[in-house]
């Protein structure tokens, strides 16, 4: 299988600070991709560069053969590459119904609005009970469901999740993991950034360790790794 997303030699940062140094990776060749590594080493910055929130200073990002580096976030949403940002803050004073309508805002997603809404409700029945409630009043797990649900309303061809389990209780994490797995089985490839390695091993087939703004190690499917090895990658030898 050819990769869905190819990141080649991307450099990006904020102001005078460079966060990503010539980073390269591929996604979609072996299934879902997981990114892990210490905080503050560029995982979120990489996702922001991919989804157009941050203009890369150099390098190329190809999604399904099309070069998307430097396109606006809106244009990238139009290609079906959908990014669920970290922290499930989303739109605190909008209702779940409003968020779902926003998810289907792009011209590409609008014709599929009803069908995608069915999907979201089937995946997260809890949301249907709180449909008119403001996002602010929901629990952390429910807010994460809204974030992912909104992304599904955008009719994704590739879904990027940034630390979906951040701050969630273990039981909620497991439920969320099952739901995300179901999305993946429905034919949407994933890129997941996570600190919880168990969660990543459950969901993804290929892992990248991101360190100092570049890929430090790539773990292909079939290559085993144990907890100790990951710990030593995090903290050095």
């Amino acid at each position: 299988m050819s990769p869905v997303l190819t990141v080649e030699g991307v450099t990006a940062g904020y102001g005078r600070v460079t966060v990503l140094h010539d980073i390269s990776l591929e996604a979609g060749r072996f299934g879902n991709v997981g990114l892990f590594g210490p905080n503050g080493h560029g995982k979120t910055t990489l996702l922001r560069a991919i989804s157009g929130l941050l203009k890369p200073r150099g390098g190329s990002i190809r999604f399904d053969g099309q070069d998307i580096a430097g396109l606006s976030a809106r244009a990238i949403v139009g290609t079906g590459l959908i990014h669920v940002p970290q922290g499930n803050r989303l739109f605190p004073d909008l209702s779940i119904a409003d968020c779902m309508a926003l998810g289907a805002y792009s011209a590409r997603a609008r014709p599929h609005e009803a069908e995608n809404r069915e999907k979201v409700i089937k995946l997260f029945p809890k949301l249907a009970q709180r449909w008119r409630q403001r996002v602010r009043t929901l629990s952390g797990g429910e807010r994460q469901m809204v974030s992912i649900g909104t992304a599904l309303m955008s009719h994704p061809r590739l879904l990027i999740l940034d630390e979906p389990t951040l701050g969630l209780a273990p039981k909620i994490k497991d439920e969320l993991c099952a739901s995300v797995l179901e999305i993946s089985r429905g034919g949407v490839p994933l890129i997941v950034v996570e600190q919880d390695i168990e969660f990543l091993l459950e969901l993804t087939q290929q892992l990248y360790l991101v360190n100092h703004g570049a890929v430090a190690t790539e773990i292909k499917p079939g290559e085993s790794l144990d907890h100790g090895e990951i710990m030593s990658m995090y903290f050095g030898h």
């Binding site: 929130l53 976030a73 809106r74 940002p85 739109f91 605190p92 909008l94």
Partner: peptide
């Protein structure tokens, strides 16, 4: 709705494809 969304979270608005 789009105007209300932009008022609340600019990044998230970009990510649902709002202009």
């Amino acid at each position: 709705l789009a105007l209300r969304a932009v008022a609340q979270n600019e990044d998230a608005s970009h990510l649902v494809g709002l202009n």
